[in-house]
Design a protein around this nucleic acid. Structure first.
Lengths: 231, 231
DNA sequence: ACAACAAGTAACATAATTATGACAACCTAA
DNA sequence: TTAGGTTGTCATAATTATGTTACTTGTTGT
């Protein structure tokens, strides 16, 4: 895991999305470039070597498919498509994009990262079956493959949102995470959600942590700033 | 698992298929190279030693038959043909030319792997990633050769699809498998099937598991993500 | 102690996801 | 061809998750 950070080119004309995606990628330690149109993207891709491309399907001028086709003549690096709606990229197109992947638009940081990792892994030789990726902090282990959170007293049963929330907190264990950041991490870039909603979910999360026999105080509140998972 | 993984050369001009096949092979621990035309394939085959060739019959330039004929002068490694059409003619011709097996195109990961394994086993030097053809998890044993699933209470009678589904789940026992992944594994890369259909099959699978005297809860549902076989 | 604000809590309506049963299309073997 | 089994899809029911509001409790600074 000490390799050079992968280079990723993000192509989208919506600043809100590129900002969100590059934020997420950089947070994970990837090296992300951003352009807002296909032509520039093609030029950049010709100059530099990228390990992965993230393309919006709908682009002004050259669209994502067209760009992908042209990229294919230059490189074999995988392509991850973003699409506005689930329907936009249905099965037929799904076949055309072959081994690449796509992500329908209301997606969260963690889902994005999961796809990116999967695609990069595919390119770089084999992946590691059995190597489960999990984090353990303060006696709680979060297993991303099994989608479980557990400790010595057994499993904590969590809803999807609670799981994402806990994951975000644990990934930044020991650091304060603001409600805005939590929303962005666990909800997605287009959260039309009140920051107060986070409080409710924190409460539910704590209840379940307590209910499973662990210390609900693991999720600390930092008044005025947000929450922090105890490290 | 301590032997050198078998080397396989995949020749097809459709990226969606090569991606799918190499994904499947690598997942099983094989070492797969990919080329999209017969000429390159022949060059590669002359340089390296491959334990198996997977050829599309329809190729630009030199077609699969021709390539097979020429490969035969170089090597005795088995050849598996892929064909778009499911015509007897292709099959007969393919086998006459010196092909060893034949797979019509809407095929699934597991069907492909089964053929590959069979062919490699036949060859003298071949190795067996996942040498045993059965998995046992949580009291259920899945025998891939016999195509049976059984435990202490006896056999569970399954339809082909149910068997594939259970196999996919058991191979990733303890990990969540998304509906998309299940479709890819058990249906094939060309699934024009609704992800919702998986639910129905899961239900049928559970019914049969229960009917045979086992715990239908072995197939756990992970709300929001997919299903998981209890490990 | 009080005002002003931040966070915790409970209740509720709505939304989303999954389970289930029924059906028609499809095979395949007799 | 028929009978029997298999498969994909849909409509509906059951279940569970989510977001918001209103209200309570706690904290901070004067």
């Amino acid at each position: 895991m000490t390799e050079t950070p992968s280079r990723i080119l993000v192509v989208d004309d919506e600043p809100s999305i590129t900002e969100f995606v590059s934020y997420a990628l950089k947070k994970e330690g990837y090296n992300a470039d951003v352009v807002d149109n296909g032509e520039e993207a093609f030029v950049l891709a010709s100059k530099n070597k990228y390990d992965l491309f993230i393309l919006d399907i709908m682009l002004p001028g050259m669209d994502g498919y067209e760009l992908c086709r042209r990229l294919r003549s230059k490189t074999t690096s995988p392509v991850l498509f973003l699409s506005a709606r689930d329907t936009e990229l249905d099965k037929v197109v799904g076949l055309e994009i072959g081994g690449d992947d796509y992500l329908a638009k209301p997606f969260g940081v963690r889902e994005l990262i999961a796809r990116v990792r999967a695609l990069l892994r595919r390119g770089a030789g084999g992946d590691f079956p059995g190597a489960s990726n999990s984090i353990t902090v303060s006696g709680i282990t979060l297993d991303e493959d099994a989608h479980t959170a557990a400790g010595d007293n057994g499993e904590i049963d969590l809803t999807p949102r609670e799981f994402e929330l806990l994951a975000s907190l644990m990934k930044s264990a020991g650091k304060v995470v603001s409600r805005e950041d939590l929303l962005r991490d666990a909800w997605g870039w287009e959260y039309l959600t009140e920051t107060k909603t986070v409080d409710t979910h924190i409460k539910r999360l704590r209840d379940k942590i307590a209910g499973a026999g662990y210390d609900p105080g693991l999720v600390e509140t930092v008044r005025g700033y947000g929450y922090r998972f105890h490290a």
